[in-house]
Design a protein around this nucleic acid. Structure first.
Length: 506
DNA sequence: TTTTGCGGGCGAG
DNA sequence: CTCGCCCGCAAAA
């Protein structure tokens, strides 16, 4: 049985979900006895109750790029998700991951941001809008009432996580330091004192080579990635991530770089089956899925790139695990992640579905291992309580809100499953569009703990009541932290250069 | 310069 | 009426 601390870290406990309330209720629960720990990555239809003195809650922070939305209600602050900025060509970074920038909140800054080129391949950047709430951006609501700050999220992010705000800030400050030292060669490099011996790789930004001009710096500073050819990311993956890991730890307030894994920067194209079959209305214009669709039998160059990247990711994941030594750093993570709080989603009226998360051999390409058989049920919102989890290197999930077909998000990041932590999906009875199915996505998995996630997965309709335990039982047995990854994506309405990718220079 | 929050206003449903 | 979203303003970072 997990300790409270574990629950906190794993984000599996939500007092907010234990109470029945809605952000719009005239009267909120008065003087709640318990509060949730701040959750940086709320996902799904979740509710939390924070102490009114919780700084992050006061600032209405979120790992997701949320912008203020006018809801004409002075008592309730509403924010909607901006999605994530990615490379239009979905190029693989040297470390195998993909660019997932945090969209600038300010419209003007965002437009400016989008005009910039991918720091890795110089192709255009693309903003993937969030449409996780019935086709609209996921919305978060904040309400201060008495000694509590009520938080309610609506929708399931259908895109990868962007870089967290703190991560972005940390990176920028690191780059500034780097630049400062670069332009003042007479001065000794400024290093993070606390970095210690790990410094060499922990601050890989220090490896940023001299820039030709400020423009480049600008690009790097904004995107966080050096231009191609530079050795910054030539470090072994483990080192690169360790660096990020250490940096995160040092920063003490940002999520561990897990999200880089948990939140696949590499999209795994949809498996040949599932949603397409399940969703007649699906317009396969998504670049990612397309590649696989067209090359399901014979990997093309792009495929291999993906596969290689996957392997890379998986391997680095392993390396990462080793290098970061989760166990020994547990406390560090905890302190850094103390805010994470996932709740028990025992909201009445909600039903939970479980999705089986197949265990995938990390050594093999997920795609070929996880592709569900053609006859596989499109809906797999079932999660076994003993699922080994999985880090999903690729996020095959795709969400197609338009036709009510949704793919199950990758639950992997939460791997606590391997720790005997049950996983649960909390569907939101309310607000649930006529969702019919949630196709499961194949995932590459690795047993690994990835703390700090707060995810609730919306169920799908296809889930049969019979197959689900009583609500109460579900709540007790399946409470879990669903984390990580996941994102289902629908690129159906976006045109991407990815199509022409297959025969290109990959 | 960007973030954040506020609120007027508009259109769609 | 609600909701999404555009816009500008202003304070703060």
């Amino acid at each position: 049985m997990p300790t409270e601390a574990q629950q906190r870290v794993n984000c599996v406990h939500s007092y907010g979900m234990k109470l029945s309330w809605d952000i719009n209720d005239p009267q909120m629960p008065q003087e709640p006895a318990h509060f949730d720990h701040f959750c940086e990555w709320p996902d799904g239809y979740v509710r939390f109750i924070y102490r009114s003195d919780e700084k992050k809650a006061q600032r209405h922070l979120s790992g997701w790029a949320m912008r203020n939305t006018n809801n004409h209600n002075g008592h309730i602050l509403k924010k909607s998700c901006l999605g994530v900025v990615v490379c239009a060509r979905a190029c693989a970074l040297p470390n195998g991951s993909r660019l997932q920038l945090r969209p600038a909140i300010c419209d003007k800054a965002r437009l400016k941001q989008q005009k910039k080129a991918c720091p890795n391949c110089h192709s255009a950047l693309e903003l993937i809008p969030c449409r996780g709430h019935s086709g609209y951006p996921v919305t978060n609501f904040w309400r201060l009432d008495g000694n509590a700050i009520f938080f309610q999220a609506k929708g399931v992010h259908d895109h990868p996580r962007p870089e967290s705000k703190s991560e972005t800030e940390a990176r920028r400050s690191a780059i500034k330091r780097q630049m400062a030292s670069f332009y003042q060669p007479q001065k000794k490099r400024i290093r993070e004192p606390e970095a210690g011996e790990d410094q060499d790789d922990s601050d890989h930004f220090n490896n940023i080579p001299p820039l030709e001009n400020l423009e480049e710096f600008d690009t790097i500073a904004d995107t966080g990635f050096p231009i191609p050819g530079q050795h910054c990311f030539s470090l072994p993956n483990s080192d690169a991530y360790k660096a990020a890991c250490d940096l995160a730890t040092i920063q003490g307030e940002i999520m561990p770089p897990f999200q880089k894994y948990a939140n696949p920067r590499i999209y795994f194209p949809r498996p040949p089956c599932s949603y397409e079959l399940a969703s007649p209305g699906y317009t396969n214009s998504s670049p990612y899925p397309t590649i696989y669709k067209d090359s399901s039998n014979k990997p093309n160059d792009a495929d291999w790139v993906h596969l290689n990247a996957l392997q890379y990711n998986v391997n680095s994941y392993c390396s990462f695990e080793r290098s970061c030594d989760f166990t020994s750093k547990q406390h560090g993570w905890k302190s850094a992640l103390g805010k994470a709080g996932l709740g028990e989603r025992t909201d009445p009226g909600q039903f939970q579905a479980m999705a089986t998360r197949p265990y995938h051999n990390p050594e093999l390409p997920c795609r070929y291992l996880t592709t569900p058989p053609p006859g596989a049920p499109a809906l797999q919102t079932v999660i076994t309580t003993t699922t080994k989890v999985s880090y999903q290197a690729y996020q095959p999930s795709a969400l197609k809100y338009g036709d009510n077909v949704q793919e199950t998000k990758n639950l992997s990041g939460c791997n606590y499953a391997s720790e005997n932590m049950p996983m649960s999906i909390y569907p939101e009875a309310l607000d649930l569009p006529a969702t019919v199915t949630r196709a499961s996505s194949p995932t590459g998995s690795l047993p690994l703990k990835i703390p700090g996630d707060c995810r609730a997965i919306r169920p799908t309709l296809a889930f049969s009541q019979e197959s689900a335990p009583s609500r109460t039982d579900r709540a007790e047995a399946w409470d879990v932290c669903i984390s990580g990854v996941g994102s289902a994506i629908s690129y159906s309405d976006r045109v991407s250069p990815f199509f022409s990718y297959g025969n290109e220079d990959f």
